[in-house]
Amino acid sequence: MSEKKSSKGIKDIAYTLLDKLGSWLLIVVIAIIMTFSSDKFLTSANFINVLRQVAVVLIAAIGISFVILGGGFDLSTGMNATFAGCNAALLMKNLGWSVPAAILAAVFIGVVLGTLNGLVVTYLKVPPFIATLGMQYIIQGLIFITTNSMPINGLPESFNVFGRGYVGVIPVPVIIMLIFVAIGQVILKYTKFGRSVIAVGENETAAKLSGLNVNITKVAMYSFCGFCVACAGIVLASRMSSGQPSSGGDMALQGIAAVYIGGTFKGSIINTMAGTLVWGFMNNALNLLNVDAYWQKVVLGIIIIAAVLFDTFRANLAAKQKK
């Protein structure tokens, strides 16, 4: 029963590489183009800048990855993040809570809201798109009620470390981001929960018949998502040194985009990181090239679609070449 390896030419290897690299390749392409177009691009300051800019979205995208891998969807993450930032600010500013206590409470509320999403989707069987759309509005309403739609400024200096601090030359948010990537990757690859999420996302019936706890897995992935986005919201508030009621609205869709651009379905959180970095470097490139802010949106929209198309195209090409 021998398996004959098909002869591997240079072409084969090239295409395999293409397939393996995935969206990292896009980053390389952007980097090469930018190196020749702008002398400000290839500097460590600029790279650190990009990392700092993507940190918040990537922290949220880790949680979003789990929900999408598990066959779910979450539109409420942006609002959930914003809410966490505002809650922390309110607790510190208006109620005089200590920084750690305020952060813990704000993150806890984020986890509760994520869990609610999970419960509604799993037990009431509301489609995730609708359930989390509803949740998005509910949270937005709560934010306006609690903050009166006004920013909460003047937060303690020790709180601002999470968004503005540095360890050496590395910004603290980047360190937090890397910790989240590592945690996400370990959970996905090395825990029963990670396995269950992938199994449930792929074939819920088979997962149930294999004795996995499908319902708990589904609820827990939304809870974990709530945890990640709330943490992202804290970092964002810290970076702005303010609880901004209208700050994180875009985050939900950016996170989802990152998951698709990066091709997280291949089963790795590293892909989510790549997807977020594509976004970050693209933004950075457009800024350095002085593209008008309004046009930037148009270009970014095209990039999302193109990246996913490119991914399909690349996979097909690689498969075809290997045959």
């Binding site: 825990t191 029963k192 990670g194 396995r195 992938i198 199994a199 792929e202 074939n203 088979a206 018949l209």
Partner: peptide
Amino acid sequence: EGLFLRSSLSANVVMVALNKIMKNGLI
């Protein structure tokens, strides 16, 4: 009802008995 088609062969084999491949709480 039996297979996770997009998952690897090994992921399929261990799906029911994940406990058996754990070491120090990790897979």
